[in-house]
Design a protein around this nucleic acid. Sequence first.
DNA 1: CATGAAATTGGTAGCGCTTTCAAAACATTG
DNA 2: CAATGTTTTGAAAGCGCTACCAATTTCATG
Lengths: 336, 336
Amino acid sequence: MPTIYQVSELAGVSLSSVSRVMNNHEHVSEKTKAKVMAAMAELDYRPNFTARSLASNCSNSIGVLVAEISGPFYSDILSGVESELSNANKHAVIVSGGCDEKKELDAIQFLIDRNCDALILCVDFISDEYLIKLSKGSTKVVIINRYIAEISDNCIFISNLLGSYQATKYLLENGHSNIAYISGPLWKIDAIDRFNGYKKAFTDSGIDFDEALTFEADYTTIGGREGMLSLLKNKKPFTALVCANDEMASAAMRVARENNVRVPQDCSIIGFDNVYFSAYLFPQLSTIENPINKMARMAVLWVLKNRYNQKDIVIQNQFDTELVLRESTQVYVEKT
Amino acid sequence: MPTIYQVSELAGVSLSSVSRVMNNHEHVSEKTKAKVMAAMAELDYRPNFTARSLASNCSNSIGVLVAEISGPFYSDILSGVESELSNANKHAVIVSGGCDEKKELDAIQFLIDRNCDALILCVDFISDEYLIKLSKGSTKVVIINRYIAEISDNCIFISNLLGSYQATKYLLENGHSNIAYISGPLWKIDAIDRFNGYKKAFTDSGIDFDEALTFEADYTTIGGREGMLSLLKNKKPFTALVCANDEMASAAMRVARENNVRVPQDCSIIGFDNVYFSAYLFPQLSTIENPINKMARMAVLWVLKNRYNQKDIVIQNQFDTELVLRESTQVYVEKT
DNA sequence: CATGAAATTGGTAGCGCTTTCAAAACATTG
DNA sequence: CAATGTTTTGAAAGCGCTACCAATTTCATG
């Protein structure tokens, strides 16, 4: 592997000059630039990434922490991050957080120890306080899918409340009034917000919602199945169901079918996130579009702006949700 | 940030000694070890990853190249790789290959330039010749989901042929004889192998397969939809369908439903890969289990063994497929 | 107690690059 | 043409660590 030194020798200039042309510095004459380029080409020189990182204190690597690597939701984030990062000729170091606070903290430390220039975090277990402190530190941090007032500039988020509000409101406006809800785990902030959106839609319509039509699950298909089973067993009738994510909605649809509840004729169902397989389901799932891929890309732009000083980038912190109507919903029709 | 130098000062030992305890070298007395550890703790010392990489010529980072980051198939790979790598206290640099040879080549160069210690590749466009040459180079390379005879030790793979053979054979043995097939793009090696498995099942059963019941698609739902539409339009009757992957099978099921073809009563369908959403579908998809996550983990073990000299690891190069029967298949019953 | 071998330690030269700083070369003005 | 300012260049000091080598200490043995 040729080094900068061999290049400088062949080109007949100093190390510094080679470095300057590598880094596109100003104040290099066309003549030396040409000589250096020629020498680089001849030697098939490739800069040593690690050495550059060490000397410049800039690794061009961005740490990305998500709860899990697979799963439609997170892989959408990763895909957005990777694609945007590679445009910028930087790269991601991706780690998964696992399922408790300690693991998330360890993962963050791991990324910092790897000299990541900045971190993109998608975390559930870590406290606001820690994140606030972290973002005051020397490593830049941007947080996806979570809003923390004190560091709102570092957050890229949707209004989860608005999302489920849109879903519930739509059902309410289309004649449904007994609308069940399967929530995510209520220690997660987004799950709380989504639940609150459901409630708010009722409040705004002047209708009381029924606690008994509500079930706290865990965002998984297993939880969704349990939830729907429990709701059905309750014997409290309902003609529509809002689920806090698409996984649970898909499980609920399956349980409905197993119990001869037709979707949407007997029960309309709306999910949340619009993960790609929601359109593969039967019936295709109506859901709330969550522009998670766009947010991930924006997080990268945030890093470009705030860590790599690309000043002209403008950051959009909040993104909009949107109701996507497919086959799993219909207007309420009174049973004869 | 404290450096090894401050640690050595505080501990009253030399740089070398600090380095030795950091790296768990033998021949360090308990006494100095204790002193160093104490100093490290007091300073909250964290080794500089980049500096270590440069000095030791070992970055502890493994480049991973997949065609795309999201999608159930690839994210399963990434998830396996990440999890196994983090056990080994190493990390992945993940990039996606895009959809042509040039991008894949660029991606590989990118990873090599980042001083990755080894590469885990999952590539379609790059030629066998290039991979053979690459694997002779100084960067270790392991290839997932592809078999190249000349470098079979570097390959972790299944028999794609066997997989679709199992699927087709099962249908044949259960009374079906008009079995359609929707293949992947036939310039991909795995798609060819899978198609050959389908044919071989017929040959072995002494039945001729019907070219007209065959459609070349592209592994996407769009292609699957086209394929099923075309097959149905053909008017050549068939009572079963094997698809070269689950995405296409899910699309085929949807088309079937739209055309009042009941699955499995009128048409049994089998997919390939057993991606996680195949169990979410209705009916749940029978499919061929592809242990892609296990293979990904094995690829990491391969790297541990071949690049990091963990001699005692034993590598399994070939993995088995398996028929997973769910709701989309049934025994053939003659129409009355 | 001398001896040699083994264990332990410190000194130092890099790893391949960036980044000051000052010197040299060049250009501009009155 | 001198005086001044402006580019352009090279020398050298690191970035924080590893790894080699040589020096020192320790220990068992005859």
